[in-house]
Amino acid sequence: MRWNWWLLAVTLGALAVAVVLAVYALRIPARTPTQPPATFRSWQVTLCYPDLKASRLVRFSLTIAATSEERVVEELVGRLKAPETPDLSPALPSETRLLSVRREGNVLVLDLNDAFVNPEFWQGSDVAHLRLQALVHTLCSLPNTHAIRLLVNGQVPEALGGHEEVSEPIQPDPTL
């Protein structure tokens, strides 16, 4: 009988230790030794949209907290597709997806999906120009970015809507 009490006490003790260890393990986040902790950084950018009359660019200052430049570009592409106010025109077709981003010196290279070249979106010389320049002005507000090179599925696309040549890196139009 006395032996049974001893067995019960040991079992309860082991259980208590297991519970303590489990709680401790849950409270400490898992870390992979090879991956440094992701740190957020603040990025000051200027977000640009064409106005509804397609006569000028409207600018907004914006701070984005992100872990990398790629994440910032993703965020900007998302915002350019859908302006927050109805008096602005989108700078990118709504189905556009960013496939990848890389740098070639001061040139930011964006690889986008097919939806980007939707001809209906790029109709009208001035509308097409303002929309493309909204994208270029926005991305060129990133540090050390002087021009944007655009690819579609890794290939150089033809002129957007027959108006905007994009085979070379595009710089901001200073008149806008």
């Binding site: 509804l52 009359k53 397609a54 025109s89 979106f121 109709q123 009208g124 010389s125 001035d126 509308v127």
Partner: peptide
């Protein structure tokens, strides 16, 4: 020579030269 178009049909009209 081009002919213009606006995102919202009928939303804009007139002459422009660039």
């Amino acid at each position: 020579i081009h002919l213009n178009a606006f995102p919202q049909p009928g939303g804009q009209w007139g002459t422009e030269v660039y």
